[in-house]
């Protein structure tokens, strides 16, 4: 196998690896969007529940 073919093969395998990483990054992004979203909603919503409980308790 001459060096030209070797280089081509190397290039193609690199492209293959890159493509696979694109997919992984895309899935990671989608999942992290979901995670950020959930985190934001629950971290903000959690305190609202607590405040409500406190005010109920003080009125009792």
């Amino acid at each position: 196998m001459n060096s030209f073919k070797k280089n081509l093969l190397k290039k193609r395998y690199n492209a293959e690896r890159r493509f696979q990483w694109y997919g992984k990054i895309a899935i990671g992004l989608a999942l992290s969007f979901l995670a950020v979203f959930m985190f934001q909603i629950f971290s903000k919503g959690y305190s609202a529940f607590q405040k409500n409980l406190d005010s109920n308790r003080s009125s009792l």
């Binding site: 997919g23 992984k24 895309a26 989608a30 999942l31």
Partner: peptide
């Protein structure tokens, strides 16, 4: 993002990842 993750899920991901992701 949608297209690449669709490709990854259908062609690369193992059964376990696909089942949950």
């Amino acid at each position: 993002i949608g297209l690449l993750s669709g490709i990854y899920l259908s062609e690369y991901a193992g059964r376990g990842i696909r089942k949950y992701a």
